[in-house]
Simulated assay, not measured.
Amino acid sequence: MSAQPDLLIERMKSGDQTAFTRVYDRYQEALHGVIYNIVKNRDVSEEILQDVFIKIWNNSDSYDSAQGRFFTWALNISRNASIDYLRSKRHKDGLKNLSTDNFVDILETSEDLDNSTNAIYLKKWINKLEPMCIKIIDVIFFKGFTFNDGAKELDMPSGTLKTRHRKCMMALRNMILN
């Protein structure tokens, strides 16, 4: 990561609202794409995105650049907030009231979803991985499965899934950074 983004993050951590606005402008599209990919609802994904940036602002002092990139940290907050929403009573109650119109809308907006994913270049990089890594990242990261549920979905032991997931994420990281 270059000095410029590091400086911006440090300024945000010290309470600089202008820096926070720049961080928002820089990352909101990518984070929104990930959130939308998980919750599949534009209004809810925008609401979660706002909550994510409130968490980023309130917890920015917990970000440590020695532990990883800021984008990865923010991505994890986004992913966790999205999964929390899917597990929430509010979401489950909403599922009980779905009409077939909602499914038509999901199908019609799937092209927009692909464009959002392409916009953050994740799909491009992930598709270069071996097929098993593509499946693992899809199940664990994009669909939000736990390792136990993902292991059942992929028909493999949980420990094996964790090891392969770690290797796949390292391969993805090396591909992106090199």
Rank of each mutant, 00 (worst) to 15 (best):
residue 69 R to N: 01
residue 91 H to D: 06
residue 105 D to R: 13
residue 128 K to F: 05
residue 54 I to T: 15
residue 79 R to S: 00
residue 119 A to S: 13
residue 92 K to T: 00
residue 72 T to D: 03
residue 53 F to Q: 00
residue 82 S to Q: 13
residue 88 S to G: 00
residue 118 N to E: 03
residue 124 K to E: 14
residue 58 N to L: 15
residue 81 A to E: 06
residue 124 K to Y: 09
residue 58 N to D: 15
residue 111 E to F: 08
residue 83 I to T: 02
residue 128 K to C: 01
residue 60 S to W: 01
residue 71 F to N: 02
residue 74 A to E: 11
residue 101 D to Q: 12
residue 53 F to C: 05
residue 131 P to T: 00
residue 54 I to D: 11
residue 97 N to G: 14
residue 125 W to H: 13
residue 118 N to M: 11
residue 73 W to M: 01
residue 68 G to E: 05
residue 72 T to N: 06
residue 61 D to W: 10
residue 62 S to Q: 14
residue 68 G to L: 03
residue 95 L to E: 03
residue 130 E to D: 13
residue 104 V to E: 14
residue 124 K to S: 14
residue 57 W to T: 05
residue 85 Y to R: 06
residue 98 L to I: 07
residue 89 K to G: 08
residue 82 S to V: 13
residue 102 N to T: 13
residue 103 F to V: 09
residue 121 Y to S: 08
residue 108 E to P: 11
residue 60 S to L: 05
residue 127 N to W: 04
residue 126 I to V: 00
residue 75 L to Y: 13
residue 94 G to L: 03
residue 78 S to L: 02
residue 66 A to Q: 12
residue 63 Y to I: 06
residue 72 T to K: 09
residue 121 Y to R: 14
residue 93 D to S: 03
residue 87 R to Y: 02
residue 80 N to H: 00
residue 126 I to M: 06
residue 105 D to T: 09
residue 71 F to G: 00
residue 77 I to V: 12
residue 88 S to L: 08
residue 120 I to L: 11
residue 62 S to K: 12
residue 130 E to S: 07
residue 58 N to M: 15
residue 77 I to W: 02
residue 111 E to R: 06
residue 125 W to P: 07
residue 127 N to Q: 14
residue 64 D to V: 01
residue 123 K to M: 13
residue 123 K to Y: 11
residue 68 G to T: 04
residue 105 D to A: 05
residue 65 S to F: 09
residue 86 L to G: 05
residue 106 I to P: 02
residue 110 S to Q: 10
residue 121 Y to T: 02
residue 54 I to M: 11
residue 121 Y to V: 14
residue 86 L to C: 00
residue 126 I to P: 02
residue 59 N to L: 13
residue 65 S to Y: 08
residue 87 R to K: 14
residue 77 I to D: 09
residue 118 N to L: 10
residue 104 V to Y: 10
residue 56 I to C: 11
residue 73 W to N: 07
residue 81 A to Y: 04
residue 84 D to A: 04
residue 102 N to D: 15
residue 114 D to W: 02
residue 63 Y to T: 07
residue 88 S to E: 07
residue 102 N to Q: 12
residue 114 D to E: 13
residue 127 N to E: 14
residue 54 I to S: 03
residue 108 E to T: 08
residue 77 I to T: 12
residue 79 R to P: 05
residue 69 R to W: 03
residue 55 K to N: 15
residue 72 T to C: 10
residue 126 I to Q: 11
residue 131 P to A: 03
residue 54 I to K: 05
residue 78 S to V: 12
residue 73 W to F: 07
residue 99 S to N: 14
residue 78 S to W: 08
residue 94 G to P: 03
residue 74 A to G: 08
residue 71 F to Y: 04
residue 96 K to M: 07
residue 76 N to I: 05
residue 87 R to I: 03
